[in-house]
Structure formats: C-alpha cells, structure tokens
C-alpha cells in the first residue's frame, strides 16, 4: 500500500461496502439457517446422490467437450483468417448473454423431437435427444463453451503468432506447432477456461430444465433438485444448496492452489 496518498474517499468506500454486503449477506444467511444436523442423512438419500452423480458427470463431460471442440474453435478464431471471422467470434459470445431459458427453447427448436435437426435425426436413426442425460450435457456445453472459447482465444492471441512463425522456420508443421508450442503457451487460458466452463455447468439450470426436463437419475442435476425441493421444503433446499456451495468452493480452492496461480506464474515468466 502506498502511504501518504491520504484517506480513501467515502464516495468510494461506502459503495464498496454496500457491494461487499450484498455479496456476503445471502451466503452468510444460508450458512446460518441451514439445519446442519440433517446434512449427513440428506447426502445419503438416493435422490441427492443421483443428482450429485449427474451434476458431476454433466459438468465433467462439459469440460471434456469444451477441451475437445472448444480448443480447436478458439484456435481457428485466433489463427485462421477467413471471411466472417468477426461474425463467428460474435456468435460464439451470444450464449453468454442469452437468458438460459431462451437457450433451452433454442435447443428444443433445433434438437427437439420435432426440431429442425431433431426430426431428421429421429427419422434417420430413431435417436431422440431431449429428456436424456446427453441432452443435459448438450445444454451445459451450449451455455458453458463461450466462457471456455473466449478464455482460450484470449490466451492464444496474447501468446501471439511470433512463436508459431519461429516454429515454422524450425521446420515444424502446424500440428506439431500447435501441440508443442501454441497449446502449452496457452495452458493458463485453457485451465482458466475449463474452470469457468465447469463452474457455469455446475450451476446450470434454465436451459437444462427447458431442454432436458427434471427427471431423477436421468436429467435431474443439483440445481434442478434444489429448485424442485424449494417449492415444498425450504429447509432441505437450503441444505442442498450448502452441499453445492461446498463442492464448488472446494474445487475452486483446489484448482487455485494447484493450477491457477502456478499457471499464471508460468505465463508471467514467458513474457
């Protein structure tokens, strides 16, 4: 802290305090009112175990899908010049601002039983997507991938094409360059993007409920279960929320120690 600059002005301190309060009060309230004694019994219930399992499966699948298709997409947006690139870049960000319910409706329109793609798919193969576990993963990926792509594309642009050019003069093909130079240099962005996508998937509710429904064991994730429980049993909903809060905070803390700070350190040294 630089000394001698005078007291921080109240005009900044007061709004800052209000902001902090707004963020903290709900979380603290949740901690205060939760019936902690019921926690072990609740966690062991089949309904909750199903929802936890599905949430874990869906969020991990989402991250894997982001890595497999989001990374190439980010690379193309950052490194390949083509007509409509800025349009493509803008479209990628649309799901960021799209209300999740609208995303769900859009997915129904595309992949629903009688949707644009869904009806063709059903006629051709008999496969129906909505109200299945894959539908949950698709909905999660739809809303989470923009976070991933933006983060990775930013990292790819920051590391620049300079190293790509050097690798090419050393005889490396573009695939080798991607694998051995571009991707390792963008790793902090990949990790940060994966965490963002994972967190977005963990809390995803609107698009999932709209597109995949809310069936225990098949499409009911933790947020869906919490919402359903809240209708008639607020205490249980609060306890379930604590579980979800705990899981996300724990994973974030773990990643922060293991990856995020270390990753940022590597990137800094590279400059």
């Amino acid at each position: 802290m630089t000394r001698g600059l005078g007291r921080p002005p109240l005009l900044l301190l007061v709004p800052a305090g209000i902001g902090l309060t707004l963020l903290l009060v709900p979380l603290v309230s949740l901690l205060v009112v939760t019936p902690w004694a019921r926690l072990p019994q609740l966690v062991a219930s089949e309904e909750v175990l199903d929802a936890l399992r599905l949430t874990g499966l869906a969020s991990l699948s989402t991250v894997v899908l982001c890595l497999l298709i989001g990374t190439p997409l980010a690379w193309v947006l950052a490194r390949v010049e083509f007509r409509g690139r800025s349009l493509a870049r803008a479209l990628v960000t649309v799901p960021l601002v799209l209300p999740p319910v609208v995303a769900g409706v859009a997915l129904v329109s595309a992949l629903g039983r009688s949707g644009v793609v869904g009806s063709v798919l059903r006629d051709a193969t008999g496969v129906v997507i909505p109200y299945t576990t894959p539908a949950v993963v698709i909905a999660h990926t739809f809303v989470a991938m923009p976070f991933y792509v933006l983060s990775v594309e930013g990292a790819l642009r920051a590391s620049g094409e300079r190293y790509d050019a050097v690798a090419a003069t050393l005889g490396a093909s573009r695939w080798t360059t991607f694998r051995r130079v571009t991707l390792p240099l963008a790793m902090p962005g990949v990790v940060a993007g994966a965490v963002l996508a994972w967190a977005r998937s963990l809390g995803e509710f609107g698009a999932t409920v709209t597109f995949a429904g809310n069936y225990q064991g098949i499409t009911q994730t933790m947020p869906s279960l919490i919402y359903q429980t809240l209708q008639n049993d607020r205490e249980t909903a609060q306890t379930l929320s604590i579980i979800l809060l705990g899981v996300s905070v724990a994973v974030l803390a773990l990643l922060r120690n293991r990856w995020l700070s270390a990753g940022a350190g590597t990137a800094g040294a590279g400059r």
């Binding site: 190293y163 090419a168 003069t169 050393l170 093909s173 130079v181 240099l185």
Partner: peptide, 20 residues
Amino acid sequence: LPVRERRVGWVVQGQALFPH
C-alpha cells in the same frame, strides 16, 4: 515452398525462445 520446408535459421530481434 512453405516456411517449414525452407532451410532457414532465424535469429529474431529480442527474445524468441520458446518460454516453456
């Protein structure tokens, strides 16, 4: 010829070593 098939050695201005 694409860049990678030209037999050049390139010493760029400033640091261009792969940092990782």
